[in-house]
């Protein structure tokens, strides 16, 4: 058994029994159900076009049907889903410093890089499972909506769905890696979660606002992690503007550029975390 396989087995055992993981998955599921289906459906049933985001009823219904699942899947990831998995990554890495478990793990002999690799692979598997679960959930709920409204169940194209799932995994993976990096950098859960949330929910938006006043700043904000993630969501069909617009969805970068930038951030965050773990003293 390779060292990384052993460390991944160890991390998977502790992650799957970690209540935090299930609480965060539950929060994400609740957000998906509430904002992608429950509220829009209630608004649609109320017959008031201004009841939810002000869109026409038919457009509102179409956004909940199976054909729209790829867009539903990725729309919430740049901000809300990203924030949730950022917390997951930050806690997965940062809590180990507070509990002293990194110290115990590192003295078991797998090597620091291999130990962190186990965490990275386990988190990647957790994110992949979360995306798969969300896809199933969205398909199920959208089918229920279609059937209950006597509409044909028209499934989205396989390629389109795969692209959306891949993009969702990439965005979620990037934010998880960002959390992992912050948890490692700050050597604790609280500060890393706080910094991560302030960045994703506040700072990037403020910078983009300021960039409207300063052109030079725009060249920077266009390449921020949130900009790349939002642009990827926009390129994969999530609405960036109009009545169905989802917070965080952007059209700044092209789809390919956004995907490459998001992937680059993912790799950079992981590499930075590994470098920090390997080089720093554990006191």
């Amino acid at each position: 058994m390779s060292t990384v396989t052993a460390t991944t087995r160890a991390e998977l055992l502790r992650l799957r029994r970690w209540p935090t993981l299930w609480v965060l998955a539950g929060v994400w599921t609740t957000l998906q159900v509430t904002f992608s289906f429950a509220f829009p459906y209630l608004a649609y049933r109320s017959g008031d076009p201004d009841a939810f985001q002000g869109g026409p009823s038919e457009q509102l219904l179409a956004s909940m049907l199976p054909k729209a699942v790829p867009q539903i899947l990725i729309a919430g990831t740049p901000v809300f889903g990203g924030a949730i998995v950022l917390i997951l990554g930050a806690l997965a890495a940062g809590s180990g410093y507070g509990w002293g478990t990194w110290k115990t793990v590192f003295t078991q002999g797998p090597g620091r890089g291999s130990a962190l690799a186990g965490t990275v692979v386990s988190l990647a598997l957790a994110v992949a499972a979360l995306v798969a679960w969300t896809l199933c959930l969205d398909l199920g709920l959208s089918t229920v909506v279609a059937v209950s409204e006597s509409r044909d169940v028209v499934l989205p194209g396989l390629a389109e769905t795969a692209r959306a799932a891949g993009g969702t995994a990439l965005v979620m993976g990037m934010w998880t890696a960002a959390g992992l990096f912050l948890g490692t950098l700050t050597r604790g859960p609280a500060l890393s979660v706080g910094l991560g949330l302030v960045w994703t929910l506040v700072v990037e938006n403020l910078l983009r606002g300021a960039a409207n006043l300063l052109d030079r700043l725009a060249t920077l904000t266009d390449w921020l992690p949130g900009s790349a993630a939002g642009s990827l969501a926009g390129a994969l069909g999530a609405d960036a503007e109009g009545s169905d617009a989802t917070p965080g969805v952007l059209t700044i970068l092209s789809g390919q550029t956004a995907a490459l930038t998001t992937a680059a951030y993912l790799v950079a965050f992981v590499v930075a975390a590994v470098v920090l773990v390997r080089r720093r003293d554990l006191t």
Partner: peptide, 10 residues
């Protein structure tokens, strides 16, 4: 070293 460090929820 310097006290045991384990996952408290396990």
């Amino acid at each position: 070293v310097e006290g045991p460090g384990f996952y408290p929820y396990l």
